[in-house]
Design a protein around this nucleic acid. Sequence first.
DNA 1: CATTTTTTGATATACGTCTATCATTTTGAG
DNA 2: CTCAAAATGATAGACGTATATCAAAAAATG
Lengths: 354, 354
Amino acid sequence: MAKPTLMDVAAAAGVSYATADRVLNRRGGVAEKSVLRVLAAIEQLGYTRDVTAANLARGRSYNYAFLIPAQAGAFFGEMRAAVKAEAKARASQRINITIEEVPAFNSDGLAEVLESCIDRDLSGICLVAIDSPRVRKAIQALRAKDVFVLTLVADTQSNSRDAYIGLDNLAAGRTAGRVLSLASRDGGVVLPIAGSLDAADHALRFKGFKQAIAFDVTVLPVIESFDRPENVAEAVRNTLEAHPNLTGIYSIGSGQNGLFIALSEVQKSATYQRPVVVLHDLVGSVRTALTIGLVDAVIDQKPDQQIARALDAMKALSDGETLPADFGTIVPSLYFQDNMPPAPADGPEQGPSL
Amino acid sequence: MAKPTLMDVAAAAGVSYATADRVLNRRGGVAEKSVLRVLAAIEQLGYTRDVTAANLARGRSYNYAFLIPAQAGAFFGEMRAAVKAEAKARASQRINITIEEVPAFNSDGLAEVLESCIDRDLSGICLVAIDSPRVRKAIQALRAKDVFVLTLVADTQSNSRDAYIGLDNLAAGRTAGRVLSLASRDGGVVLPIAGSLDAADHALRFKGFKQAIAFDVTVLPVIESFDRPENVAEAVRNTLEAHPNLTGIYSIGSGQNGLFIALSEVQKSATYQRPVVVLHDLVGSVRTALTIGLVDAVIDQKPDQQIARALDAMKALSDGETLPADFGTIVPSLYFQDNMPPAPADGPEQGPSL
DNA sequence: CATTTTTTGATATACGTCTATCATTTTGAG
DNA sequence: CTCAAAATGATAGACGTATATCAAAAAATG
């Protein structure tokens, strides 16, 4: 028996197609007993609406926009590539995706783009949030127009968006702490390096890190790089000087160049045993560092999976479903040289398919 | 401008809808120059076929079957739940999925079910392979009828199926080796426990393990449990007796009960420092063990992701696409207490949606 | 040029649903 | 019982594509 159609349901319920349709689409004006009979028939036949046919009839397509920060490191580059890949994959399913470049670290720039989206007939928008009154206001304006707003990677206030898709930073920090604790079994000394502890994500990671670190491991005062590679290289050099027995380094943020420089010096000099190094985000340069053994473990937030998840979330919201509570939580992945996933390939253009 | 339709393409190419259709669907009998004009129009307008409308018109739906071993431990239970979840999620997209129970470890039983599938009008089938002549023959018969056959978790000969979706066992073993090496920095002694090294997956994991283990770490002779918990408990006890300084245990296979028993004895006695324990598959009991700190790290093969991947693969094959080379390779995930993903919830039944 | 062959156009029906309209039946109130 | 209100039925057009048929036009053949 083929999949039942609404016609079958109507027949089974002993009503006309029109009535079955009125029930299914809650158009009202149907007697209670008829409603029940239709619902019973739906239940009994296991009817599910063919959403593809429904969308076709409604002339409905899903328009989503991603606002991705421009040129802010390799991470967002991968993110952009992932969006493009998903856009292509879903194009044949009436899902249209556009990417808007947004100036990095600039809340007014972000707000401006958001404001320009208001009359673009979008059903959802996905942004890397920077909190500011103007941004919040723009988001509210969009949501008032029934545009779903998701935050990605970085969140705003939780009541001002529909969902947040992003890394569980506390778990990420704990994982780092666990690895360095394992690697410093009988006590040890570890150095945390952050971009800035004022950034919410870095602070959370650091908090988790301290939670998970073993009691007999000494955590040195955290170094804040403020995105200046020289600072990091210098600080790592000094620390190694002062603590030749350093067992671990946790680089909490991005911008790893300074760290790489200092580490390769250590590797060459061979005066010290290299500490175990844990850092974040498996982008190109980090991938290389892991491959050649300059660092040991990488905590990744799987940008491609985040994009896919964000799209699934927006589609679900558009279809009137509600999201499970922890839908947006991305569990940190831990990669060694040994279980690195293959690098994302920007596949060649495909011709029109059959 | 809305998404272009084939009508738009025909108009742009200056031909009729019928001709554009003939080109798109390779029906033949079209002059070379017309073909070129249509293709140019497709290119220029960025036309992509609306597959949902196409499937609707074709009356096409995708019928897939999953053959999952019955009652063979919690792992396949999770797998079955994942299939059910995906089945529900894709029901509205003309994808029908059935689950067939297959007797565990029984190649004839598997073959029988396979043979019964031959005239069921399936477009794809997914099984946990057990190699035997009869199974191979059944698979060939299916493929001869244009049914795509994927293997899951366990493979057959690579030329006898369309794709294999499964864990990269070598990488999994290497990852375990890496963790135990990290945890045994200045030398150490580690104990590998396998179900049976005759099983291809266990052998591969063990091979990877040895590859990644540090040179100054001693690997004790591997214990083979042959799925008897008592053996494992006994062997672990003896090993701890003989090597009070044991730094790590790698449990290569499933059936962890014996290990858990021995470990909880150690935990209580407090005579030894508990070795670092790495094992496989984050099923219920393992999850508990990880939570209470009985074990340290779990390598997971993400059954839910495997199911999703398998479905994507079958759908892609059905649509005439070719799969990327490493499509089926599942990268092992490493979980600590700290980054455990939430347990899969068997969500409550949802009423008919809007 | 006449004839056959190839190519093209026009058009109809179908897929499962949405939306709308109009006619008809049933129900409830007075 | 009468009349309005509520409920139901019947049906048509649309969405974008697939598939088929038949006639008309263009090209190739002799």
